[in-house]
């Protein structure tokens, strides 16, 4: 393709091709600090393309393709090319990765042990992970957490954090502006701005961490903590996994072990300050 870039996030090596220069330039900026082994072949391919040649210039719209595609996915305007690239990368991992069990969850780590937060978009899991990652936690990822079926460890997937709507201002006030990508306003998911993880989190992205605490956050409402049984955590995580069924028995064994060995809580919190305080408190109590 006309423009391309190679990016390694955690264990996954991507190659991303594009009919336009802009999305590739934006990716190069966000992922400049990520280690890159030029001899390593790609595990996953993403293609950003124009459905018709003239749509490269005339009302340019970016179709998302690659090894795996979603039929009938709507294209995005070129101004949102970076979001298209992010969606394309997520899609390849969600549908194509088989080495680990994939959880739709954020994660942070401390002392080699991981806190995993699973929830739907809007639950605040990404924002909490991003904010904790600016403190004394290592950010492992805001979107996917991988579980090694053999060892049971959590594996990091620290892509550029996708901050949405109110979280943008909240995080932007605490970080160097050089770590923020361009503001993408009015996307199908609202306003989006990417945050480049801290250099130490990127440098440590190959280091696994032992799962020590599972949280199922819900943003909004009174501060509340509810211990969650193994069964409920198991069912929720099967729903949060994109490859649980495809992994078969290995996926079942990995997930069973995860919920048996890791204390789990459902939490709700009214604002990020309260949420972070609650996380620290639960970590101190539960993850001893």
């Amino acid at each position: 393709m006309r423009h391309s870039v190679r990016i390694a996030v955690g264990p996954v090596q991507f190659r991303i091709g594009s009919d336009w220069a802009e999305p590739v330039a934006a990716l190069r900026h966000l992922y400049a600090g990520y280690p890159q082994d030029e001899t390593r072949s790609a595990d996953a391919t993403v293609r950003l393309f124009a459905a018709r040649p003239w749509r490269r210039w005339l009302r340019p719209s970016v179709h998302i393709g690659g090894d795996f595609i979603v039929p009938d996915a709507l294209p995005l305007p070129l101004s949102m090319g970076l979001l298209a690239a992010e969606m394309g990368m997520n899609l390849q991992v969600a549908l194509g990765w088989r080495r680990h069990m994939l959880l739709h969850a954020s994660a942070v780590a401390k002392d080699g042990r991981a806190l995993i937060m699973s929830g739907e978009s809007g639950s605040g899991k990404s924002t909490l992970a991003a904010l904790l990652g600016e403190g004394d936690w290592r950010l492992m990822g805001d979107e996917f957490t991988l579980i090694d079926p053999a060892a049971g460890d959590a594996i990091a997937f620290p892509r550029a954090v996708s901050l949405k709507n109110d979280a943008i201002a909240e995080v932007a006030s605490r970080v160097d502006a050089a770590r923020l990508g361009p503001l993408l306003s009015g996307t199908p998911k609202g306003d989006i701005r990417h945050l480049i993880p801290r250099a130490d989190a990127i440098a440590a992205m190959q280091e696994p961490a032992r799962p020590a605490l599972l949280l199922f956050p819900r943003f909004g409402g009174e501060l509340a903590v509810e211990p969650m049984g193994e069964g409920e955590a198991f069912v929720r995580l099967t729903e949060a996994s994109t490859n649980y069924v495809a992994l078969g028995e290995a996926g079942f064994a990995a997930l069973t072990r995860l919920v048996r060995e890791t204390p789990a809580f459902g939490i709700s919190y009214p604002d990020s300050e309260a949420g972070m305080a609650l996380v620290e408190q639960l970590w101190a109590e539960a993850a001893r």
Binding site: R40, D43, R98, A250
Partner: peptide, 17 residues
Amino acid sequence: PPAVAALFADQRAAAQV
């Protein structure tokens, strides 16, 4: 190459399942 061998091992295991 190691990366290719690792990817291929994943693929064989996934195909077996």
